[in-house]
Write a protein that binds this DNA or RNA. Sequence first.
DNA 1: AATGGGACCTGCGCGC
DNA 2: TGCGCGCAGGTCCCAT
Length: 267
Amino acid sequence: MPELPEVETIRRELSRKVIGKKIGAVRIFRALVVRQDTGVFSRALTGAVISRVSRKGKLLLLELSGHKALAVHLRMTGQLVYPGGEGVPRVRFTFTDGTSLDYRDQRMLGDLRAVMDWRELPFVKNLGPEPFVLTEAAFSAMLAKRATKIKPLLLDQGFIAGIGNLYASEMLFGAKIHPERPARSLTGAEKKKLYHRMVDILKKAIAHKGSSLDQFVRTDGTKGGYVRFHQVYGRDGKPCSACRSKIVRVSIGGRGTFFCPACQRGT
DNA sequence: AATGGGACCTGCGCGC
DNA sequence: TGCGCGCAGGTCCCAT
């Protein structure tokens, strides 16, 4: 479940480690994760120099010389490890200095592709605003227009970029809002609170290098430290930190959703 | 517009 | 103990 904080962690770490490096060779061990012709992929990347690493929502972009980019979506179990070299990854990028960047992905749901203009990717074009760019007023106005349940709405990448299942539950708990509340039913105070919990939680998760519950690891293979701050996600049956009621897990929009039935009232 | 389902994948934990 | 099954969740796609 790499979400915005996890992808941002990787972005920052790769920025420190691989900018300026030249890709000498691309080895594809499992073609499934390369979502385009593998020859096109390899030829586009070989010889390119990494100029910058950026992020759009949960999409990581290794920008290259010649206006190209390597777009990486980790989906569920993707990992980028540097320096790589251990075991057999799905894809290995070997730099001309001899080091390598490994793309690992247990479930192979990830998405790697070399693109000429990442701004033209449908995923990018459909992306909603970045949480850190959005103002409170704009966020409130966006919520006011929507009748749908707040929790699935926060997961909609076209509505807002980067939030996934874990942080959606955490921020709704922080704002004391029931996950099935229609977005437009939130009061002004609730919308304000949700905006601030959203920003605070994402920033704090980045500060702690993300949440490693299952597969997420940092580029050096170590785990992120935010799990110990989780209030509800993965804590069903355990006491709420605020009121000691038991945290419950329900399915909303087909996704596991954790909340405190006492603190987060009503629909 | 909203909602619900299936598809993509693998490994884990559950029930029997 | 062993086996089969459902499930985990990011995104896309289809149907209603």
